[in-house]
Amino acid sequence: MYDVIIIGGGPAGITAGIYAARKKLKTLLLTRDFIGQVGLTGPIENWPGEPRIKGADLINQFEEHLRKHTLDIIEEEVSVIEKDDVFRITTESGEKMARTVLLATGRTPRFLEVPGEQEYIGKGVVYCATCDAPVYQNKKVVVVGGGNNGLSSAIELTDYASEVTLLEIQDSCPADELLQERARDKGVTIRTNQTITKISGDDYVSEVELRDGSSMQVDGVFVEIGSLPNSSVAPASIKRNKLNEIEIDQYSCATNLDGFYAAGDVTNIKDKQIVTATGEGAKAALSIYSYLRNLE
């Protein structure tokens, strides 16, 4: 029986793991992998102490730091979470039991949901610009989404692609001004009030249709239109908001189910940042520690 089972190997889950281990809680961390949203991110410039670090390197550092502490780590996906007198968590290797649970499963990139998208995944439709940008050497590409991730991807792509166009559905990009300026300097064409309505091609993507009815010849479509919370594994009784984010008490990260906590991007916190997720993970672990002590 564990004191706490943490589900998720991103900034919130890892920080919670470190804090829980330091409080000597009997801790198990379950995660599909240690990649997540951070691993898929290009250069990160707002993590204090590291003026510029690749997402994959940062999450590796987090994982190494976690593994220096005493806790169990199993790289498996969770299929069911149930509660009777204790929490029972099912993974492929069986059932694990705990007095408390912390859900820190983060978010998954959103699909465009246009014809051709599913068919051409890996054949021109890309969700990890960092991974595949070098494959698009001298190709024409389009990035969909004018947030920070979209702009960062577009900037990264200018090192390889011959032509980079960025489409933003609203009349201005929500990304940081600094990134927009850098993208323009690097030759990215930014088109606002615009998005893709259809993706087509032969073996690979060759054309996209835009919402104004025009079309573009492109080899790659990089989708960066935000993400959805990975909250479906939480028990049905857990309160979620309209966006399917887990509703937490902002002071303690507790949910409406006694002993069940949530932290980071899967929750209804306002800002989804690495630095905020780590803070939330610490907060949740310390709240769980107090909760368990009060039970004794």
């Binding site: 240690f34 990649i35 994959a56 960092t130 991974c131 595949d132 940008a133």
Partner: peptide
């Protein structure tokens, strides 16, 4: 692989 591929080190 590519030098920036994040899943490659995991494999």
């Amino acid at each position: 692989t590519t030098p920036t591929c994040v899943f490659c080190p995991a494999i």
